[in-house]
Lab assay of single mutants.
Amino acid sequence: VEVSPDIYQQVRDELKRASVSQAVFARVAFNRTQGLLSEILRKEEDPRTASQSLLVNLRAMQNFLNLPEVERDRIYQ
């Protein structure tokens, strides 16, 4: 799965849209901590040159964001 270069903005938009914390998003989207998500968003590494471990996390976030909005909102509950 190709990771979109605007994945970082997509995540920020989703945090605002759903009014969820980084901690909640990190847990449900890719089963990691708020600290890691914060670092990923701060660095904004180009997905095309990202490490394998970062790509795994970015893909998981993208797959989560590809779910229908209704389903994502249900998962946040």
Score class of each variant (00 low, 15 high):
residue 1 V to S: 04
residue 1 V to F: 06
residue 1 V to M: 04
residue 1 V to N: 04
residue 2 E to H: 14
residue 2 E to D: 11
residue 2 E to I: 15
residue 2 E to L: 13
residue 2 E to G: 11
residue 3 V to A: 04
residue 3 V to G: 05
residue 3 V to C: 05
residue 4 S to Y: 14
residue 4 S to C: 10
residue 4 S to D: 14
residue 4 S to F: 15
residue 4 S to T: 09
residue 5 P to S: 12
residue 6 D to F: 03
residue 6 D to H: 13
residue 7 I to L: 10
residue 7 I to F: 08
residue 7 I to Q: 03
residue 8 Y to S: 01
residue 8 Y to K: 01
residue 8 Y to E: 01
residue 8 Y to R: 02
residue 8 Y to Q: 00
residue 8 Y to H: 04
residue 9 Q to M: 10
residue 9 Q to Y: 13
residue 9 Q to L: 09
residue 10 Q to H: 07
residue 10 Q to V: 06
residue 11 V to K: 02
residue 11 V to F: 01
residue 11 V to E: 00
residue 12 R to A: 03
residue 12 R to C: 03
residue 13 D to N: 15
residue 14 E to G: 01
residue 14 E to L: 00
residue 15 L to R: 03
residue 15 L to T: 03
residue 15 L to C: 15
residue 15 L to A: 04
residue 15 L to P: 02
residue 16 K to A: 14
residue 16 K to L: 15
residue 16 K to T: 08
residue 16 K to D: 14
residue 17 R to K: 05
residue 17 R to T: 02
residue 17 R to S: 01
residue 17 R to F: 00
residue 18 A to E: 03
residue 18 A to R: 10
residue 18 A to G: 14
residue 19 S to P: 11
residue 19 S to Q: 15
residue 20 V to S: 02
residue 20 V to F: 01
residue 20 V to T: 04
residue 20 V to K: 01
residue 21 S to C: 06
residue 21 S to T: 07
residue 21 S to P: 07
residue 21 S to A: 03
residue 21 S to N: 12
residue 22 Q to H: 08
residue 22 Q to G: 10
residue 22 Q to D: 10
residue 22 Q to M: 07
residue 23 A to H: 13
residue 23 A to I: 10
residue 23 A to E: 15
residue 23 A to Y: 11
residue 24 V to P: 02
residue 24 V to K: 02
residue 24 V to I: 15
residue 24 V to A: 08
residue 24 V to R: 03
residue 24 V to W: 04
residue 24 V to M: 08
residue 25 F to V: 00
residue 25 F to M: 03
residue 25 F to E: 02
residue 25 F to C: 00
residue 25 F to N: 00
residue 25 F to H: 01
residue 26 A to N: 04
residue 26 A to I: 02
residue 26 A to C: 05
residue 26 A to W: 00
residue 26 A to S: 14
residue 27 R to H: 13
residue 27 R to Q: 15
residue 27 R to L: 11
residue 27 R to C: 10
residue 28 V to Y: 06
residue 28 V to N: 04
residue 28 V to P: 02
residue 28 V to I: 05
residue 29 A to I: 15
residue 29 A to E: 00
residue 29 A to G: 06
residue 30 F to D: 04
residue 30 F to G: 07
residue 30 F to V: 05
residue 31 N to D: 06
residue 31 N to A: 09
residue 32 R to P: 04
residue 32 R to I: 06
residue 32 R to T: 09
residue 33 T to S: 13
residue 33 T to C: 07
residue 33 T to N: 06
residue 33 T to I: 02
residue 33 T to K: 05
residue 34 Q to G: 11
residue 34 Q to N: 08
residue 34 Q to V: 06
residue 35 G to H: 14
residue 35 G to F: 15
residue 35 G to C: 11
residue 36 L to S: 12
residue 36 L to I: 10
residue 36 L to A: 04
residue 36 L to V: 05
residue 37 L to G: 03
residue 37 L to A: 03
residue 37 L to M: 06
residue 37 L to T: 03
residue 37 L to W: 03
residue 37 L to D: 05
residue 37 L to I: 10
residue 37 L to S: 03
residue 38 S to H: 08
residue 38 S to W: 06
residue 39 E to C: 15
residue 39 E to D: 14
residue 40 I to S: 03
residue 40 I to Y: 15
residue 40 I to Q: 01
residue 41 L to P: 02
residue 41 L to R: 01
residue 42 R to E: 14
residue 42 R to W: 07
residue 42 R to I: 07
residue 43 K to H: 11
residue 44 E to T: 07
residue 44 E to I: 03
residue 44 E to Q: 12
residue 45 E to R: 06
residue 45 E to A: 08
residue 45 E to N: 06
residue 45 E to K: 08
residue 45 E to L: 08
residue 46 D to I: 04
residue 46 D to P: 10
residue 46 D to H: 15
residue 47 P to S: 04
residue 47 P to W: 04
residue 47 P to F: 04
residue 47 P to D: 01
residue 48 R to V: 11
residue 48 R to M: 10
residue 48 R to I: 11
residue 48 R to E: 14
residue 49 T to G: 10
residue 49 T to A: 08
residue 49 T to W: 10
residue 49 T to C: 14
residue 49 T to Q: 12
residue 50 A to Q: 04
residue 50 A to N: 03
residue 50 A to H: 02
residue 51 S to Q: 09
residue 52 Q to T: 12
residue 52 Q to E: 10
residue 52 Q to M: 08
residue 53 S to N: 08
residue 53 S to A: 13
residue 53 S to D: 15
residue 54 L to V: 13
residue 54 L to E: 09
residue 54 L to S: 10
residue 54 L to W: 03
residue 54 L to Y: 04
residue 55 L to G: 07
residue 55 L to H: 07
residue 55 L to W: 06
residue 55 L to S: 08
residue 56 V to T: 13
residue 56 V to E: 12
residue 56 V to R: 10
residue 57 N to Y: 08
residue 57 N to C: 12
residue 57 N to V: 06
residue 57 N to G: 06
residue 57 N to S: 11
residue 57 N to D: 11
residue 57 N to H: 14
residue 58 L to E: 00
residue 58 L to F: 02
residue 58 L to R: 00
residue 58 L to Q: 01
residue 58 L to D: 01
residue 58 L to K: 00
residue 59 R to P: 01
residue 59 R to T: 12
residue 59 R to Y: 06
residue 60 A to W: 04
residue 60 A to V: 07
residue 60 A to M: 11
residue 61 M to W: 01
residue 62 Q to S: 11
residue 63 N to M: 13
residue 63 N to G: 11
residue 63 N to V: 09
residue 63 N to E: 13
residue 63 N to R: 13
residue 64 F to E: 02
residue 64 F to S: 00
residue 64 F to Q: 01
residue 64 F to W: 13
residue 64 F to A: 00
residue 64 F to V: 04
residue 65 L to C: 07
residue 65 L to P: 00
residue 65 L to I: 09
residue 65 L to N: 02
residue 65 L to W: 00
residue 65 L to G: 02
residue 66 N to S: 13
residue 66 N to F: 08
residue 66 N to C: 08
residue 67 L to T: 08
residue 67 L to A: 07
residue 67 L to G: 03
residue 68 P to L: 04
residue 68 P to S: 12
residue 68 P to T: 07
residue 68 P to K: 08
residue 68 P to W: 00
residue 69 E to K: 10
residue 69 E to S: 09
residue 69 E to C: 10
residue 69 E to L: 11
residue 69 E to P: 12
residue 69 E to D: 09
residue 69 E to Y: 06
residue 69 E to I: 08
residue 70 V to Y: 13
residue 70 V to R: 12
residue 70 V to A: 12
residue 70 V to G: 13
residue 71 E to A: 11
residue 71 E to G: 06
residue 71 E to P: 00
residue 71 E to D: 06
residue 71 E to H: 12
residue 72 R to P: 02
residue 72 R to F: 00
residue 73 D to Y: 04
residue 73 D to T: 06
residue 74 R to K: 09
residue 74 R to L: 09
residue 74 R to W: 06
residue 75 I to Y: 12
residue 75 I to H: 08
residue 75 I to D: 14
residue 75 I to V: 10
residue 75 I to M: 14
residue 75 I to W: 07
residue 76 Y to M: 01
residue 76 Y to I: 03
residue 77 Q to P: 04
residue 77 Q to K: 07
residue 77 Q to A: 14
residue 77 Q to Y: 15
residue 77 Q to T: 12
residue 77 Q to L: 12
